[in-house]
Protein backbone atom coordinates (compact mmCIF):
# COMPACT_ATOMS: atom_id res chain seq x y z
CA UNK A 1 0.00 0.00 0.00
CA UNK A 2 2.80 2.39 0.90
CA UNK A 3 4.35 1.74 -2.49
CA UNK A 4 1.23 2.77 -4.32
CA UNK A 5 0.79 5.84 -2.17
CA UNK A 6 4.36 6.74 -2.94
CA UNK A 7 3.83 6.55 -6.68
CA UNK A 8 0.52 8.41 -6.67
CA UNK A 9 2.02 11.07 -4.42
CA UNK A 10 4.97 11.42 -6.71
CA UNK A 11 2.61 11.87 -9.62
CA UNK A 12 0.47 14.49 -7.87
CA UNK A 13 3.36 16.49 -6.54
CA UNK A 14 4.86 16.67 -10.00
CA UNK A 15 1.69 18.15 -11.44
CA UNK A 16 1.74 21.91 -11.31
CA UNK A 17 -1.73 22.19 -9.79
CA UNK A 18 -0.70 21.26 -6.29
CA UNK A 19 2.22 23.69 -6.40
CA UNK A 20 -0.08 26.44 -7.64
CA UNK A 21 -2.54 25.63 -4.85
CA UNK A 22 0.23 25.84 -2.26
CA UNK A 23 1.43 29.17 -3.55
CA UNK A 24 -2.13 30.49 -3.73
CA UNK A 25 -2.75 29.61 -0.10
CA UNK A 26 0.63 30.93 0.95
CA UNK A 27 0.14 34.29 -0.74
CA UNK A 28 -3.37 34.69 0.60
CA UNK A 29 -2.40 33.75 4.14
CA UNK A 30 0.58 36.09 4.25
CA UNK A 31 -1.50 38.82 2.67
CA UNK A 32 -4.36 38.42 5.12
CA UNK A 33 -2.06 38.31 8.13
CA UNK A 34 -0.34 41.49 7.00
CA UNK A 35 -3.62 43.24 6.26
CA UNK A 36 -5.38 42.09 9.38
CA UNK A 37 -3.06 43.71 11.87
CA UNK A 38 -3.61 41.31 14.74
CA UNK A 39 -3.21 37.54 14.37
CA UNK A 40 -6.82 37.10 15.48
CA UNK A 41 -8.08 39.24 12.67
CA UNK A 42 -5.86 37.38 10.25
CA UNK A 43 -7.30 34.09 11.47
CA UNK A 44 -10.83 35.39 11.01
CA UNK A 45 -10.27 36.43 7.42
CA UNK A 46 -8.38 33.24 6.78
CA UNK A 47 -11.24 31.20 8.20
CA UNK A 48 -13.66 32.29 5.48
CA UNK A 49 -11.10 31.56 2.83
CA UNK A 50 -10.29 28.15 4.24
CA UNK A 51 -13.94 27.17 4.50
CA UNK A 52 -14.76 28.26 0.98
CA UNK A 53 -11.76 27.48 -1.18
CA UNK A 54 -10.28 24.46 0.56
CA UNK A 55 -13.44 22.35 0.10
CA UNK A 56 -13.88 23.56 -3.47
CA UNK A 57 -10.33 22.90 -4.58
CA UNK A 58 -10.13 19.63 -2.67
CA UNK A 59 -13.32 18.25 -4.15
CA UNK A 60 -12.64 19.37 -7.72
CA UNK A 61 -9.02 18.32 -7.68
CA UNK A 62 -9.79 14.94 -6.15
CA UNK A 63 -12.65 14.20 -8.55
CA UNK A 64 -10.57 15.13 -11.57
CA UNK A 65 -7.67 13.14 -10.26
CA UNK A 66 -9.85 10.11 -9.72
CA UNK A 67 -11.16 10.11 -13.26
CA UNK A 68 -7.71 10.79 -14.68
CA UNK A 69 -6.31 7.87 -12.70
CA UNK A 70 -8.94 5.51 -14.00
CA UNK A 71 -6.65 3.65 -16.39
CA UNK A 72 -3.90 3.70 -13.85
CA UNK A 73 -6.21 2.04 -11.37
CA UNK A 74 -7.13 -0.47 -14.06
CA UNK A 75 -3.48 -1.21 -14.53
CA UNK A 76 -3.12 -1.77 -10.81
CA UNK A 77 -6.29 -3.83 -10.62
CA UNK A 78 -4.83 -6.25 -13.19
CA UNK A 79 -1.89 -6.68 -10.83
CA UNK A 80 -2.12 -8.95 -7.82
CA UNK A 81 -3.26 -6.16 -5.49
CA UNK A 82 -6.38 -5.85 -3.41
CA UNK A 83 -8.80 -3.27 -4.74
CA UNK A 84 -9.32 -1.80 -1.31
CA UNK A 85 -5.62 -1.16 -1.12
CA UNK A 86 -5.61 0.61 -4.44
CA UNK A 87 -8.55 2.75 -3.44
CA UNK A 88 -7.21 3.69 -0.03
CA UNK A 89 -3.82 4.45 -1.51
CA UNK A 90 -5.39 6.80 -4.01
CA UNK A 91 -7.44 8.44 -1.29
CA UNK A 92 -4.60 8.86 1.13
CA UNK A 93 -2.24 10.10 -1.53
CA UNK A 94 -4.67 12.77 -2.74
CA UNK A 95 -5.74 13.81 0.76
CA UNK A 96 -2.17 13.87 2.03
CA UNK A 97 -0.81 15.89 -0.85
CA UNK A 98 -3.62 18.45 -0.53
CA UNK A 99 -3.05 18.54 3.22
CA UNK A 100 0.65 19.11 2.78
CA UNK A 101 -0.14 21.95 0.39
CA UNK A 102 -2.50 23.35 3.01
CA UNK A 103 0.00 22.92 5.82
CA UNK A 104 2.65 24.75 3.84
CA UNK A 105 0.29 27.38 2.49
CA UNK A 106 -1.63 28.12 5.67
CA UNK A 107 0.09 26.26 8.51
CA UNK A 108 3.46 27.94 8.11
CA UNK A 109 2.08 31.51 7.98
CA UNK A 110 -0.13 30.72 10.99
CA UNK A 111 2.90 29.49 12.91
CA UNK A 112 5.09 32.40 11.78
CA UNK A 113 2.54 35.06 12.63
CA UNK A 114 1.98 33.47 16.01
CA UNK A 115 -1.70 32.73 15.99
CA UNK A 116 -1.58 30.35 18.96
CA UNK A 117 -4.07 27.66 19.81
CA UNK A 118 -6.83 29.06 17.61
CA UNK A 119 -4.40 29.05 14.71
CA UNK A 120 -3.69 25.44 15.46
CA UNK A 121 -7.42 24.69 15.44
CA UNK A 122 -7.76 26.49 12.13
CA UNK A 123 -4.99 24.43 10.56
CA UNK A 124 -6.35 21.21 12.03
CA UNK A 125 -9.84 22.07 10.77
CA UNK A 126 -8.42 22.79 7.33
CA UNK A 127 -6.71 19.41 7.23
CA UNK A 128 -9.90 17.67 8.32
CA UNK A 129 -11.93 19.59 5.74
CA UNK A 130 -9.43 18.49 3.09
CA UNK A 131 -9.79 14.83 4.06
CA UNK A 132 -13.58 15.17 4.20
CA UNK A 133 -13.97 16.77 0.80
CA UNK A 134 -11.53 14.42 -0.88
CA UNK A 135 -13.65 11.62 0.57
CA UNK A 136 -16.79 13.21 -0.85
CA UNK A 137 -15.05 13.62 -4.19
CA UNK A 138 -14.21 9.94 -4.24
CA UNK A 139 -17.77 9.10 -3.35
CA UNK A 140 -19.01 11.22 -6.24
CA UNK A 141 -16.46 9.54 -8.51
CA UNK A 142 -17.41 5.98 -7.67
CA UNK A 143 -21.12 6.71 -8.02
CA UNK A 144 -20.84 7.45 -11.71
CA UNK A 145 -18.35 6.54 -14.43
CA UNK A 146 -19.13 9.69 -16.36
CA UNK A 147 -16.46 12.27 -15.59
CA UNK A 148 -18.68 15.25 -16.32
CA UNK A 149 -21.43 13.83 -14.14
CA UNK A 150 -18.96 13.06 -11.38
CA UNK A 151 -17.55 16.57 -11.35
CA UNK A 152 -21.11 17.86 -11.45
CA UNK A 153 -22.02 15.84 -8.37
CA UNK A 154 -18.84 16.98 -6.64
CA UNK A 155 -19.63 20.62 -7.34
CA UNK A 156 -23.18 20.15 -6.11
CA UNK A 157 -21.85 18.64 -2.89
CA UNK A 158 -19.57 21.61 -2.39
CA UNK A 159 -22.35 24.04 -3.20
CA UNK A 160 -24.63 22.30 -0.78
CA UNK A 161 -22.24 22.25 2.14
CA UNK A 162 -20.66 25.64 1.60
CA UNK A 163 -23.81 27.55 0.82
CA UNK A 164 -27.20 25.96 0.45
CA UNK A 165 -27.17 24.09 3.73
CA UNK A 166 -26.70 27.26 5.74
CA UNK A 167 -29.50 28.89 3.80
CA UNK A 168 -31.86 26.03 4.59
CA UNK A 169 -30.93 26.03 8.27
CA UNK A 170 -31.30 29.80 8.53
CA UNK A 171 -34.70 29.49 6.97
CA UNK A 172 -35.69 26.75 9.41
CA UNK A 173 -34.41 28.83 12.32
CA UNK A 174 -36.38 31.80 11.08
CA UNK A 175 -39.54 29.76 10.60
CA UNK A 176 -39.34 28.09 14.00
CA UNK A 177 -37.94 31.10 15.84
CA UNK A 178 -40.57 30.86 18.57
CA UNK A 179 -39.22 27.57 19.86
CA UNK A 180 -36.08 27.04 21.92
CA UNK A 181 -33.61 26.10 19.24
CA UNK A 182 -30.27 26.05 21.04
CA UNK A 183 -29.69 22.33 20.81
CA UNK A 184 -31.46 21.93 17.50
CA UNK A 185 -29.04 24.46 16.05
CA UNK A 186 -26.16 22.58 17.56
CA UNK A 187 -27.37 19.39 15.92
CA UNK A 188 -27.81 21.13 12.60
CA UNK A 189 -24.30 22.52 12.61
CA UNK A 190 -22.94 19.07 13.33
CA UNK A 191 -24.62 17.89 10.14
CA UNK A 192 -22.37 20.07 8.04
CA UNK A 193 -18.60 19.70 8.39
CA UNK A 194 -18.00 23.21 7.07
CA UNK A 195 -20.19 24.71 9.79
CA UNK A 196 -18.65 22.49 12.39
CA UNK A 197 -15.16 23.59 11.40
CA UNK A 198 -16.15 27.24 11.34
CA UNK A 199 -17.62 27.02 14.81
CA UNK A 200 -14.64 25.21 16.28
CA UNK A 201 -12.39 28.05 15.18
CA UNK A 202 -14.82 30.87 15.88
CA UNK A 203 -15.67 29.77 19.38
CA UNK A 204 -12.04 29.42 20.30
CA UNK A 205 -11.23 32.85 19.00
CA UNK A 206 -11.47 35.82 21.31
CA UNK A 207 -14.60 36.97 19.53
CA UNK A 208 -16.66 34.16 21.00
CA UNK A 209 -17.42 36.24 24.07
CA UNK A 210 -18.81 38.84 21.73
CA UNK A 211 -21.53 36.48 20.62
CA UNK A 212 -23.70 37.07 23.66
CA UNK A 213 -25.71 34.63 25.67
CA UNK A 214 -26.03 31.89 23.06
CA UNK A 215 -22.42 32.33 22.06
CA UNK A 216 -21.48 31.72 25.66
CA UNK A 217 -23.60 28.59 25.76
CA UNK A 218 -21.88 27.15 22.71
CA UNK A 219 -18.51 28.31 23.93
CA UNK A 220 -19.07 26.27 27.08
CA UNK A 221 -19.66 23.26 24.85
CA UNK A 222 -16.93 23.72 22.25
CA UNK A 223 -14.46 25.45 24.51
CA UNK A 224 -13.94 22.44 26.75
CA UNK A 225 -11.41 19.75 26.02
CA UNK A 226 -14.20 17.23 25.82
CA UNK A 227 -16.19 19.38 23.42
CA UNK A 228 -13.30 20.09 21.12
CA UNK A 229 -12.37 16.42 21.05
CA UNK A 230 -15.95 15.50 20.25
CA UNK A 231 -16.06 18.11 17.51
CA UNK A 232 -12.91 16.82 15.86
CA UNK A 233 -14.22 13.29 16.36
CA UNK A 234 -17.30 14.28 14.41
CA UNK A 235 -15.14 15.72 11.67
CA UNK A 236 -13.28 12.44 11.56
CA UNK A 237 -16.62 10.69 11.18
CA UNK A 238 -17.44 13.05 8.35
CA UNK A 239 -14.33 11.84 6.55
CA UNK A 240 -14.73 8.17 7.44
CA UNK A 241 -18.33 7.72 6.34
CA UNK A 242 -17.86 8.77 2.70
CA UNK A 243 -14.46 7.08 2.48
CA UNK A 244 -15.72 3.76 3.76
CA UNK A 245 -18.89 3.82 1.71
CA UNK A 246 -17.04 4.75 -1.47
CA UNK A 247 -14.44 2.11 -0.76
CA UNK A 248 -17.24 -0.41 -0.47
CA UNK A 249 -18.75 0.72 -3.76
CA UNK A 250 -15.35 0.72 -5.44
CA UNK A 251 -14.51 -2.81 -4.41
CA UNK A 252 -17.86 -4.06 -5.70
CA UNK A 253 -18.08 -2.38 -9.02
CA UNK A 254 -16.86 -2.98 -12.52
CA UNK A 255 -13.91 -1.11 -13.90
Amino acid sequence: MNKIIKYVLLDIIKSKIIIAYTLFLLLLSIGLFNLGGSPDKGILSLLNLVLLTVPLISIVFATTHFYNSYEFMELLVSQPINRTKIFMSEYLAVALSLSVAFLVGVGIPVAVFGAGLTGFYLVLTGVFITFIFVAMAFLASVITRDKAKGIGIALMLWFYFALIYDGIVLFILYAFGDYPLEYATLAMTVLNPVDLGRIIVLLNLDVSALMGYTGALYKSIFGSVWGITAAFGLLLLWALIPVLSSRRIFSRRDL
Partner: peptide, 8 residues
Amino acid sequence: PPSVMFMR
Protein backbone atom coordinates in the same frame (compact mmCIF):
# COMPACT_ATOMS: atom_id res chain seq x y z
CA PRO B 1 -30.49 33.94 19.10
CA PRO B 2 -29.08 30.49 18.23
CA SER B 3 -28.61 31.59 14.64
CA VAL B 4 -25.54 33.46 15.86
CA MET B 5 -23.84 30.12 15.26
CA PHE B 6 -23.85 30.98 11.58
CA MET B 7 -21.80 34.10 12.06
CA ARG B 8 -19.27 34.48 9.27
